[in-house]
Amino acid sequence: MLKNEKLLKFLGKKIVRFIILLIFVILLSFILIDMSPINPVKTYIANLGVVSPEKIAILESYWGVNEPITTKMFNWLANIIHLDFGTSLIYRAPVLDVIKQKFVASLVLMLSSWIFSGVIGFLLGVVAGFKKDTIIDKAIKVYCYILQSAPTFWIALLFLMVFSVYLGWFPTGLGVPVGTLSENVSFWDWLQRLILPMITLSVVGIASITLFTRDKLIDVMNSDYFLFAKARGESGWNLIVRHGIRNVLLPAITLQFLGFSELFGGAVLVEQIFTYPGIGQAAVSAGLRSDVPLLLGIVIFSAIFVYCGNLIADVLYNFVDPRIREGEEDGG
């Protein structure tokens, strides 16, 4: 079968699967929110001040508080199909607009730290694997084990304390100043606010990719072809680059794509501490202040984000690696 045709079929299947999954994610989160003691009318009123009982009745019918869950759910689902996610209660703007704006800010943060941690983590892993059982390897391993056990938000707190409070390199209130539109913030201001959260998120993300790369490289170094290359007289970095990295790179990139979920989780915590105006911070305030439409919207978009990572990883694994492609044809 032609490769492109196969790829399209694969993608189509995956997308259908995802749509079904997404519907269930929506149902699940809707049921959870409905179970909770959150009352959207109360939240709405809390932001308005004194409201007459007649107004409350109107609002209740507007939000459909007294309708059964199935009606509420179908109304909401029908709106989502028309890309109407409702209005955010705390931002007073359409949910889709809020998410668009916040997600772009978060994507910059997440992707930059994703690339940074991927590159550094991979290099550290290669060094550790190459220098197996030396001091360097042990140091890298200890570093990774400690970071894996460290709570992300604690690392972020320490970084904030050291770099912003003591060294004064970065502003302490790292978010965009209240009342300022994101367009009015100069590029330098914005970059200054991005660097520390990005470094924090990278430092936390390095551990898993480093340990994975190290183990894979050690596997490769124990293989017969590696031994043969050595016997031919190759040695040092040349040997690692030609026979090691080539075999380790693709699985490492695949793993990095599978880490989108953890990346998002890390971003939620890091954004909260550095008050970076991204999707994670929006999710937390939506949860704390009972902004149901925004919270549900963010859940949907985070699921899409995670799924994109998994899909790319799947494609890399199934279509880019020549060994797996051949293996599939062998097996029929």
Binding site: S36, I38, S261, F264, G265, A283, V299, A303, Y307
Partner: peptide, 15 residues
């Protein structure tokens, strides 16, 4: 696994 863990925990916790 399709929703980031932390978001799902928040949702369940709220629920």
């Amino acid at each position: 696994l399709s929703v980031p863990h932390i978001l799902l925990i928040i949702l369940i916790s709220i629920g």
